[in-house]
Amino acid sequence: MGYELYFGSGGGATGEINAYCLLDNGRLYHRPTKTGEFFLVDRIPKRRRNDLFWQVDNLDLFGVQFLEHENRFRFLQIKGQEGVNRVMWGDRTASQLPDGITDLYKELQVIAAESRD
């Protein structure tokens, strides 16, 4: 596979972007705006990461064309042999996303929060 799944949020008055990267080997990296560099924060168990990447495949994240940048935004980005694709949305445009995208994002945010604890 060789997938890299990026997710996070940003914008607002500061323009800061808080990003994570989940590799298909389970390593989860975090890039706070202040450092600009990714650092390892956790390893996601195999069953959970397989479920997440199954969702990516099921949602056809490589095929979703949605870039609606607002002042505050959220994003998912997939990188793999198929190329790179980014999906970006804000509060006003979230309801226009294909089914399952926001659910995947919320699940990834839960994982990120658990990794910070």
Score class of each variant (00 low, 15 high):
86 R>F: 08
79 K>H: 08
32 P>C: 06
64 V>A: 04
84 V>N: 11
72 R>T: 13
21 C>P: 00
107 E>M: 01
116 R>V: 00
53 F>W: 04
64 V>D: 01
31 R>L: 02
113 A>W: 08
114 E>Q: 09
46 K>A: 10
10 G>S: 06
38 F>H: 01
47 R>M: 12
87 V>T: 08
38 F>D: 07
34 K>S: 11
50 N>Q: 10
23 L>M: 05
2 G>R: 12
76 L>Y: 07
34 K>I: 14
106 K>N: 14
100 G>S: 02
76 L>C: 06
60 D>S: 14
39 F>A: 09
79 K>T: 05
65 Q>I: 10
58 N>H: 06
100 G>D: 01
56 V>W: 00
68 E>H: 09
62 F>Q: 03
11 G>A: 03
57 D>N: 12
31 R>P: 01
117 D>I: 09
44 I>M: 04
53 F>V: 00
8 G>K: 05
3 Y>T: 01
114 E>P: 02
79 K>I: 11
15 G>H: 12
21 C>Y: 02
95 S>T: 15
62 F>N: 03
90 G>W: 10
45 P>L: 12
69 H>E: 13
103 D>H: 14
52 L>H: 03
59 L>G: 02
10 G>M: 04
65 Q>C: 07
16 E>F: 15
100 G>L: 03
109 Q>I: 09
25 N>A: 14
33 T>L: 05
32 P>V: 04
9 S>N: 15
26 G>V: 00
38 F>L: 12
78 I>S: 00
31 R>H: 02
71 N>R: 09
85 N>M: 05
94 A>C: 13
1 M>T: 11
85 N>R: 07
54 W>K: 14
89 W>S: 01
13 A>M: 15
89 W>Q: 05
40 L>D: 10
41 V>W: 00
45 P>V: 11
114 E>G: 07
27 R>P: 00
108 L>T: 03
109 Q>E: 10
74 R>N: 07
101 I>M: 04
12 G>T: 00
44 I>R: 01
55 Q>E: 05
103 D>N: 08
46 K>M: 09
43 R>P: 02
41 V>Q: 04
84 V>F: 07
76 L>H: 03
50 N>C: 06
54 W>G: 06
75 F>Y: 14
32 P>F: 08
99 D>N: 15
75 F>H: 03
74 R>G: 00
116 R>H: 10
79 K>A: 05
55 Q>N: 09
37 E>T: 09
102 T>M: 02
88 M>K: 12
42 D>C: 02
27 R>W: 02
62 F>A: 02
10 G>L: 02
5 L>T: 01
100 G>F: 00
93 T>G: 10
96 Q>A: 15
92 R>Y: 07
57 D>Y: 06
87 V>S: 06
63 G>N: 13
